[in-house]
Simulated scan of single mutants.
Amino acid sequence: MIIVTRLDGRHFAVNPDLIARIFESPDTILVMADGARFIVTEPMAEVIEKIASFRAQVISVAYNDAPGPAKRSSHLSIIHPADPSGPITGGQ
């Protein structure tokens, strides 16, 4: 969740995965996937930075909680199909 501020100064948390669009004209408006709209005091760039930081934190927590070998890898890898010995085929 990210914390944003209403025009009256109250803070609230919003799930960034449910934000469909962000407008800035001049107020910043968050349009949610269900159509709800929230006007917030933060500029659009700050909201986007909060979303990026939230997602980086989620990845960091997942990485740090990963068992053994996954922690030693410094890059992301592809998740292979259920049968790792079989060839990976494209959509033919």
Rank of each mutant, 00 (worst) to 15 (best):
15 N>A: 03
82 A>Y: 13
58 V>I: 14
80 H>Y: 14
59 I>H: 08
75 H>P: 09
43 P>T: 06
66 A>S: 12
48 I>C: 05
72 R>F: 03
46 E>M: 06
84 P>D: 13
42 E>Y: 06
7 L>F: 13
79 I>P: 00
83 D>R: 12
32 M>D: 01
19 I>T: 01
47 V>G: 00
30 L>T: 03
87 P>A: 11
74 S>A: 09
43 P>Y: 07
57 Q>V: 11
2 I>T: 12
34 D>Y: 04
5 T>V: 08
52 A>S: 12
16 P>A: 09
69 P>L: 07
22 I>A: 00
9 G>C: 08
21 R>I: 07
92 Q>D: 11
44 M>K: 13
46 E>Y: 11
55 R>C: 01
54 F>Q: 07
71 K>I: 10
81 P>E: 15
60 S>F: 08
65 D>I: 04
24 E>I: 10
2 I>W: 00
46 E>D: 15
51 I>G: 00
61 V>F: 12
54 F>H: 13
69 P>I: 13
33 A>M: 06
10 R>S: 09
51 I>Q: 00
19 I>L: 05
72 R>M: 13
19 I>Q: 01
51 I>H: 03
47 V>Y: 00
21 R>C: 09
54 F>N: 07
70 A>H: 15
92 Q>P: 08
30 L>K: 01
9 G>T: 03
77 S>Q: 13
15 N>V: 01
50 K>T: 03
63 Y>T: 05
20 A>M: 09
61 V>C: 04
79 I>T: 07
15 N>K: 01
3 I>E: 12
63 Y>K: 13
85 S>T: 08
57 Q>P: 01
15 N>P: 10
38 F>P: 04
54 F>T: 07
65 D>L: 10
33 A>H: 04
27 D>V: 04
57 Q>T: 05
71 K>G: 06
85 S>A: 15
59 I>V: 10
47 V>T: 02
6 R>V: 06
26 P>W: 04
8 D>H: 01
11 H>W: 10
53 S>Q: 11
5 T>N: 11
65 D>T: 08
74 S>G: 02
5 T>M: 02
19 I>V: 06
15 N>E: 02
9 G>F: 06
10 R>M: 09
18 L>V: 08
64 N>W: 10
29 I>Q: 12
55 R>E: 08
69 P>S: 06
36 A>Q: 06
33 A>S: 12
26 P>A: 01
76 L>F: 10
61 V>M: 09
20 A>P: 06
1 M>F: 05
